[in-house]
């Protein structure tokens, strides 16, 4: 009598276990579809842009002007820190490229950088961004190596472009590294194309996971490139010194070409967050 009852319970437990097992089997399939794109999880810096109207000056500074003979790329915009060009609203950072005459330039925009405020070697750098669109629009989320107060110059300092994009190819972004012997047109770059979607109609996550002798590039849940010293024809300049973050929207310049009649202004880049994690290594 007693034994029989135990047996019954046992059957129930087995059925239950079977159910749980099939549940795991199903969700296991779903998990396999998502690549693990990042493993560094210890957050060291984050700007969630949660205070409207305020750019956190403990994290961000601004480049002002056209950057001619300096950091410019023959671009057409004049960078300002005016709220018309850069502000925080509804929990997102908004960088706005406008068509207007301003100090001799025909366009204005903004370029934020963490130089001297937040710099780090290695780690995971990630931002969630909705991009602008249109011919001549060139937004970027990128890192530059510290130049030791001007004693070192680009490209020796190194440049890691986490996200670049030209507005007349709204489904394609690209990630790039520049260094000595592989800068500008010879830089090491790879594009990633969204299938049946665009970068200007919704937010997407752009990130790198960067450690000694490697940089992994990902978009959303897709790890689409890894760059190592074997991939660069010159010195690997990413194992030394800290890098700082830059967020900007350029107008014109050699890479995207000039805006045309179809380019709509103003154009906005929306940044939901910027997060930086420490390397596990």
């Amino acid at each position: 009598m007693n034994n029989k009852y135990t047996y019954k319970i046992g059957m129930q437990i087995m059925v239950f276990v079977f159910c749980i097992a099939s549940f795991f089997a199903i969700s296991g399939c779903a998990t396999d579809d998502n690549q693990t794109v990042a493993t560094f999880t210890e957050l060291v810096m984050a700007d969630e842009f949660s205070v409207d109207g305020t750019i956190d000056s403990s994290i961000w500074g601004f480049d002002i002007g056209t950057g001619e003979n300096g950091w410019g790329n023959n671009e057409l915009q004049y960078y300002t820190d005016r709220p018309e060009n850069v502000t925080v609203q509804n929990g997102v950072l908004i960088i706005t490229a406008k068509e207007e005459q301003f100090n001799g330039a025909s366009y204005t925009s903004a370029r934020l950088l963490t130089r001297g405020k937040f710099e780090q070697t290695y780690g995971r750098f990630e931002a969630r961004i909705r991009l602008p669109y249109g011919k001549g629009i060139w937004p970027a989320f990128w890192l530059l190596g510290d130049d030791s107060n001007g004693s070192e110059i680009w490209p020796d300092i190194g440049e890691i472009d986490i996200m670049e994009y030209v507005g007349d190819q709204p489904s394609r972004m690209f990630g790039t590294v520049h260094g000595p012997g592989y800068s500008g047109g010879e830089s090491i770059s790879k594009g990633y194309v969204l299938e049946n979607d665009r970068f200007d109609t919704g937010f997407h996550i752009f990130g790198i996971e960067w450690g000694p002798d490697y940089i992994n590039y990902y978009v959303d849940d897709v790890l689409y490139n890894q760059i190592t010293p074997d991939d660069v024809p010159g010195e690997w300049v990413f194992n030394r010194g800290p890098f700082y973050i830059i967020l900007n929207v350029a107008v014109g310049g050699a890479l995207p070409g000039s805006p045309n009649a179809e380019t709509v202004f103003p154009q906005t880049m929306l940044v939901d967050y910027v997060r930086v994690y420490k390397t596990n290594n």
């Binding site: 489904s171 049946n196 665009r198 109609t201 709509v264």
Partner: peptide
């Protein structure tokens, strides 16, 4: 088709 690349209506 649902191209997904048709956007930015004007």
């Amino acid at each position: 088709e649902k191209l997904g690349t048709v956007a930015q209506p004007q």
